[in-house]
Structure formats: C-alpha cells, structure tokens
Simulated assay, not measured.
Amino acid sequence: MLDLSKIAGQIPGISQHMHKEAIASGERLELAKKLQQQAASTQAKLIATQADFRDRLLFAAATPIEPLDRCFDIPIAPYSHSVFATDGSQISPSHHEIAYCYLINIGQIMIHYGQSLHPVLDSVPEVFYKTEDLYVSRQWGIRLEEWMGYRRTVSEAEILADIACNWVLPPGEHYDTPNLALVDGSLIYWFLDGLPVEARDKILPPILAACERLRATKIPMVGYVSASRSTEGLNFLRLQTCEHEHPNCVVNCGDLVNNYPCQKIDSLRDSTFWSSQLLPGQRSPLYRSNLRILDLYEDAQRVYFCYVNVGTEIARIEVPAWVVEDKDLFDRSLSIVLAQVHKGYGYPVALAEAHNQAVVRGGDRARFFGLLEQQLIKAGLRNVGTSYKEARKRGSIA
C-alpha cells in the first residue's frame, strides 16, 4: 500500500522542477521558430549537407521533403470508406502459474462507413507453450517477455494484412471504395536495431511481408503515434546552428558532452514545436526518416512522417514511401485518419476498439488458467495448481 503522507513533502519539489522546465521549454521553442525560418531559406543546401555527412552526425535527423515553413490543410474524408485496425495484448508467462506458457490476443476491427455494412469487432487469441516458443530467445540473450512483445508485433501486422487484403480482393467491386489500414504506434521498428541478426530475421521479414501485401492491394498503411516524444524533425534544424564549416560531429564535437549551439533545442519535442504552428485540421511538412533500421526496408516501404493537429493533440502520422508518392492517396489517408479521431472523440475509433477487443483483464486471465487447469486434470496430470507464493499473494489476511 502506498502511503501518500510520506511522499507529500516531495511534491513541491516536483512542481518547482516542472515550472523551471516549462520556462526553459518556452525559450527553446522561440529559438526553434527562428531556426525554422532561417533553415527554410537554405533548405536545399542543408539537405545536401545532411546527405554528405549523414554518417558523421551524432544525432538522428529526418529530412524534410516539403517547405519547412508551410502548414497544409487536410481535406474532408470521403463519405464511403473502410478502416481496418489491429492491436494486441498478452498474458505473460509465470513459473508460479498452473503452466508455463503465454498467450497473445490480437483485436481485429473492420468498420465500413457509408456502405450499409456491419462492422467486424473480434479477437484472435493464440497460446504459446512449445519448447521452441518458450526458450528460442535464450540463445540471443533476449528475455522471454521481450520476445513475446516482438511476436505480438508480428501477429498484429499479419492479421491486419489478412483482414484488409481478404476484404478488398474478393469481390472486385470493393476496389472503388477507399480503404485504410491503421496501426497503433510507429511503422519504424527501431527496437529491433540492436538485436542479433538471427533474432531480427525472425521478426522483421514477416512484418515487411505483411506491409508488402497491403501495398500490392493498394491499401494505405498508416501508423498513428499519440503523445510522440520524437525530436527527429527538429534535429534537422540543428544543422542550421552548426558553427563549423562541415557538420562533422565525430571530428569537431566528440561525444557532444559540451554545450554546443546545436544542443540548445536538443530536448524540444517535434510535437511541442508543431503545436505552436498548426491549426486544427492542418499538418506539418513531410519528413523522410533516416533511422538506421530503415536501411533494412525496401525503398517503397521506407517511412515518412508528418505531424497533424487532430484537435486534441499533435499526432505523429507515419506512412510508407509508396503512399507518399501518390498525393491523392496520401491526402485521402490523412483525411480518414482525422475523421477517425473525430469519431473517437480524440483518438481513432478503430484503434480504440481494437484495443478493447485485445485487452486481457484480470478476470480473463483467471478464466484462462481455470480452463487450462481443467484440461490438465482431465488429461490425468496431478498436483496441478499455482505455487504457494502466488496463492498467498492473491489472498491477504489484512
């Protein structure tokens, strides 16, 4: 039990710290606005410099492909369209439970607008209990809980491609209706960058194969990132502040431990900056992400992003290159995303429903292990039950 009276004395210190951070953030924001105007006038030169010294930069900077000082209006969504979405949840393995296994539950959503069709709200659970499922990640030093998250990401992508592609392929008349595949979170699987090659090759290829299926069926895939903490876009402005002839961080600045000019906007988030620039229903310029993991993607699947004022927040919207190359498709995709947010009262309704279908609550967990216990007893196994530690934690004498 948390004793609030014992931490009450720490709260004023937190508020004072946050007040100072707010003042510092305001100063960084004003500096970023000035740098934006300066960089907009020399944007082509900065992009060329970035390309020449990309491998010498000690920070990840995205490349703007539209004027930095422009904001773009998002059109109204078409009356008839379909939205597909998935999200996942899981039951983690525990040695104190009845059996050492884990479960991944994927919520799948299909909502049709202006077509007089019923929505599909469903979930697809899968239990992993075989030796190769439970211990394969040990050879790479990856914890099972972490590996389970990677497997869940694969399942989300594959099921999203299944429900979307199987819907629009038969029969052919569905091609005329705009479609959108929504992903909760980023399309950049940056967390795989530090994995051993053998481990990464079991996760990334099936995800990219699912993305390729969507491209072949011409269903735009969009990643919706809420409360983004990224600084990738603003990092491009750091090139404008460089006081050296060439932005060679490795040679000129070492490990950036000193207070260099380019670090003055270092902790300012892209979303914070664009909140001061965008009106509701507007988007920022498009950026091409240059994160290293994207070198493993095909050119058509490389990720671009922009920031959109959806009314309740500044959301980061990510799309693959093939969607960006078709301006009408890109604009239509953004319009459907914005309509989803409005229908969901601040968050895309399809993603919210996918989460609701996927989430595994305490009662679901108890029923799952109860069902498993019945089957184990029926199979003739004895001494089936939780550990004494787990049983004791579930009931208190207090």
Score class of each variant (00 low, 15 high):
114 G>A: 01
25 S>A: 11
25 S>C: 11
28 R>T: 00
45 K>V: 11
208 L>V: 05
14 I>Q: 03
18 M>S: 11
328 D>W: 12
238 R>Y: 09
137 S>R: 02
66 E>I: 07
335 S>L: 08
240 Q>V: 05
10 Q>C: 08
349 V>T: 09
159 I>H: 09
178 P>R: 14
37 Q>W: 03
21 E>I: 09
388 Y>L: 13
85 A>V: 03
159 I>G: 06
378 K>P: 02
146 E>R: 09
234 L>A: 01
165 C>F: 07
6 K>F: 05
343 K>R: 15
355 H>T: 04
248 N>K: 02
172 G>S: 14
187 L>H: 09
80 S>L: 02
58 L>C: 06
207 I>A: 00
244 H>I: 00
363 G>M: 00
388 Y>Q: 14
251 V>I: 12
338 L>S: 01
239 L>Q: 04
42 T>N: 09
257 V>M: 13
326 D>C: 01
394 R>E: 12
206 P>A: 04
69 D>Q: 05
197 V>H: 14
218 K>C: 09
196 P>L: 01
164 A>R: 08
85 A>K: 05
249 C>P: 03
360 V>P: 02
344 G>A: 04
305 F>M: 12
116 S>F: 03
90 Q>R: 07
138 R>A: 14
98 I>V: 15
62 A>E: 09
56 R>C: 04
120 V>M: 13
128 F>A: 01
282 Q>P: 00
129 Y>R: 07
386 T>I: 05
276 S>N: 10
120 V>F: 07
200 R>C: 03
82 S>E: 14
177 T>W: 03
382 R>S: 13
97 E>A: 10
338 L>E: 02
215 R>H: 02
49 T>S: 11
93 P>V: 00
79 Y>T: 15
48 A>M: 08
285 P>T: 10
32 A>H: 01
44 A>V: 00
318 E>G: 05
133 D>W: 04
375 Q>K: 14
44 A>H: 05
170 P>F: 04
329 L>P: 01
96 H>R: 11
297 Y>I: 09
213 R>P: 00
385 G>D: 04
135 Y>W: 12
127 V>G: 05
154 V>L: 02
43 Q>L: 07
347 Y>A: 10
188 I>H: 09
57 L>D: 01
207 I>Q: 00
342 H>D: 05
350 A>D: 08
58 L>M: 06
170 P>Q: 13
393 K>W: 07
337 V>R: 10
230 S>Y: 07
201 D>G: 08
189 Y>M: 10
6 K>W: 02
101 C>Y: 00
375 Q>C: 06
351 L>R: 01
264 K>H: 14
158 E>Y: 14
331 D>H: 14
57 L>I: 00
150 Y>H: 13
